[in-house]
Design a protein around this nucleic acid. Structure first.
Lengths: 192, 192
DNA sequence: CAATCAACTTGATCCAGATCAATTTCATTT
DNA sequence: AAATGAAATTGATCTGGATCAAGTTGATTG
């Protein structure tokens, strides 16, 4: 794989500065993957063997509750990471599904290879430290919004922050991600 | 400070293995701090200069909404970290308050010193990578519970996971942390 | 140790968003 | 292009937890 003009490397270099040798070493440990629309990347009960970088496409993670209802907690598109981190880092069976909402191209790496790379390229561990730090801060903000803002506020916030999602993701899924029913989302949109 | 039998070092060594020299270096960069009950460690508008490890005590972080209502998003007790990470890492003014619920003893480190330490002791960056990773996974679980479980379920979960909080934290604050009113929490407890 | 303020409880009422049910619109497959 | 199934809309009704109000218990502080 060519390090130059590679999307993944481009995003690493936003926060850390890699040498060409490091870029090559890192890339040699990633392998491409592809999931067709509506197919699962991960199913409940499977152990999540990889962490994935989406180069092009769209995925959702969700779980199914006792009543059989699906609840989406992540929607990720191009140039974002997706995985079930709980399963990936513990190497225990997942409680979640990860499904492609579009034909999706990914780059994946196993836990074993990632941990080897951390030792060989400590800067990479810095990248992931920063990544998780930001993800954590984000999750707390989403938590606050879910607890204390109205559904209308969360809808508007999402429209502002992720307008692209509305072009590519069915509203049923966006509703679930916002923590409301499709009926409520439909009514919110009507009133705007 | 003595590295041996130090709580902070004990917790670092749960996930990484430090040499005595590294332990001493790390500890020499932390300084003790103390906050009296009901006093603020951080106020809205201040930049959060430190990340803090609570050696003994209890703290809450909260924000005040447009109507003047307080909303608690973190309660932390002994042997946990507390900070406003958003403000700390960006070095911009905080949107949150951090207040002591008991007389609290802490160990603090500035962003500058922490980043120096990352370079000198890469294992420390590993510790924080793992810390944020776990914190992120946790925040997502709390988000799912807030979106999809009932108030009763969240109360029972908290009773199971953090029974100690009910001994030390007033119910008004626990209610806010759970995303409900004190009235609702009182009614939930009555019915059990 | 009384006074004052904060925490907690209980009751009555209200409302944002859920649920249930029926169409309508749209997308995919043959 | 017809058939099928999924997504979206609309209406009627319901409900978990909020809000408002008042009273009680408990903990600080002068």
């Amino acid at each position: 794989m060519q390090a130059i003009d590679n999307k993944l490397i481009y995003y690493f270099n936003k926060w850390i500065k890699l040498t060409t040798a490091e870029e090559d070493l890192i890339l040699s440990n990633f392998e491409p993957a592809f999931v067709k629309k509506k197919k699962d990347l991960l199913e409940v009960g499977e152990t999540c063997t990889y962490i994935y970088f989406i180069t092009k496409g769209c995925m959702r993670s969700y779980f199914v509750d006792a009543k059989g209802n699906e609840h989406i907690y992540q929607i990720r598109m191009d140039n974002n990471w997706i995985s079930d981190l709980q399963s990936f880092f513990s190497q225990r069976p997942s409680l979640y599904y990860i499904e492609a909402l579009e034909d999706t191209h990914l780059l994946r790496i196993s836990l074993e290879k990632l941990e080897e790379l951390y030792d060989k390229v400590p800067k990479l561990e810095r990248y992931f430290r920063i990544l998780f730090q930001k993800a954590y801060i984000n999750a707390l903000e989403r938590l606050n919004a879910t607890m204390w803002d109205t559904a209308v506020d969360r809808y508007n916030e999402m429209l502002k922050e992720h307008p692209d999602m509305f072009q590519r993701v069915p509203l049923v899924y966006i509703a679930s991600y916002l923590g409301i029913t499709p009926e409520s989302l439909s009514r919110i949109r009507k009133k705007q």
